[in-house]
């Protein structure tokens, strides 16, 4: 390069100072290629065609025309290296003392792809280049995001488990009061509000054990708990998958049967449940037999959608069953 203004560099100095430079004449003759750039486009020295294209959208792909426009118009240059995937070179250029065009290029956001494609190292970048910092940030960012997303997954899992636990009765594994309230509210909320989830009738069964107190008093709480657990097993067996069985108090259970409107089917179900529960009577209990009383209401879509009204009515039915001598079901 000829001296002009005392800033001339030898070819060797130019290569060390600007490892990503490209120096060329207006006729397209390549005069020198920086060593890092040469790693990505090894035969660039032989000429631009087939090796670089203009990557600015809406313009001709001719690289030489784009370079001249950027140099003389003091604009920005965006080139793409052919035969490599997605590596974009960004840069600018000036005319040097000899009238040749001198470009300084960089990788921009495609840095990591360039590093991978040409197996670049720290030595391929000048100290003022932020390449190392960008790679550091990229990996740091990925590492932290990975950890955070794993923590998030764990939190979501723990939350789901906690929600389920909060709606479950620890002794029997049935729903608890809160779980029932949610299911019942949902069943009633569908009451004509959304066409795609058309409301279905619901039978609400309030079940109370007969002579449970005697089991507790005579045989102890452990025997009482054991009985509750086995009653729950009976109920689970008698309801279908879409139904809900809950324990809502000491020896009080509620069944929510979806789509159930047949009184005779409900009476049959009640008889089956009562029979199965009578069989659970502990042999040590000689004075009386454990059984169950059931109060049942059938809710049809369009009726009140107050859950507490419905539960009150089931409770009244249960009271009638108890008053009529227990061990039976009353349907209101």
């Amino acid at each position: 390069m000829s001296a002009a203004g005392g800033t001339a560099l030898t070819l060797d100095a130019l290569k060390r100072f600007l490892p990503m430079h490209l120096r060329l004449r207006d006729d397209g003759t390549v005069l020198s290629v920086g060593p890092t750039l040469a790693k990505l486009a090894p035969d660039l020295q032989a000429g631009l065609p087939g090796r670089l294209v203009n990557a600015r959208p809406g313009r001709s792909t001719c690289p030489l025309a784009a370079i001249q426009e950027a140099v003389d118009g003091q604009g920005r240059l965006i080139l793409r290296i052919l035969n490599t995937r997605d590596i974009i070179l960004r840069g600018h250029g000036v005319r040097d003392g000899a009238g040749a065009m001198l470009l300084n290029l960089g990788f921009g956001i495609s840095l990591h792809r360039a590093i991978r494609a040409a197996e670049l190292t720290d030595d391929d970048f000048v100290p003022s280049d932020l390449a190392m910092e960008l790679m550091f940030l990229r990996e740091a960012n990925r590492g932290v995001l990975h950890v955070l997303s794993r923590f998030n997954d764990q939190l979501a899992e723990a939350r789901q488990e906690a929600v389920l636990q909060a709606q479950t009765d620890a002794l029997t594994g049935l729903r608890n009061r809160r779980g029932l309230d949610l299911e019942l509210a949902q069943a009633l909320r569908l009451n004509g509000h959304r066409q795609e989830d058309a409301a279905v009738p619901v039978a609400l069964i309030h079940l109370d054990l007969d002579h449970f107190k005697q089991v507790n008093d005579l045989l102890g709480h452990l025997a009482g708990d054991e009985l509750l657990y086995r009653v729950a097993a009976v109920l689970k067996q008698q309801v279908r998958k879409a139904d809900t069985a809950a324990r809502v108090g000491g020896d009080e259970f509620v069944l929510l049967m979806r789509g159930m409107t047949s009184r005779s089917a409900l009476q049959d179900l009640s008889k089956r449940i009562i029979r199965a529960i009578r069989l659970l009577t502990p042999p040590e209990l000689t004075e009386c037999q454990v059984s169950a009383s059931l109060g049942i209401v059938i809710w049809m879509p369009g009726e009140t959608d107050s859950a507490s009204d419905l539960l009150d009515r089931a409770d009244k039915a249960l009271y009638q069953a108890k008053a009529a001598g227990r061990s039976q079901a009353v349907i209101l």
Partner: peptide
């Protein structure tokens, strides 16, 4: 190497 695979999390 700069381009080595970093593995998933820190």
């Amino acid at each position: 190497t700069l381009y080595g695979s970093p593995g998933p999390g820190i």
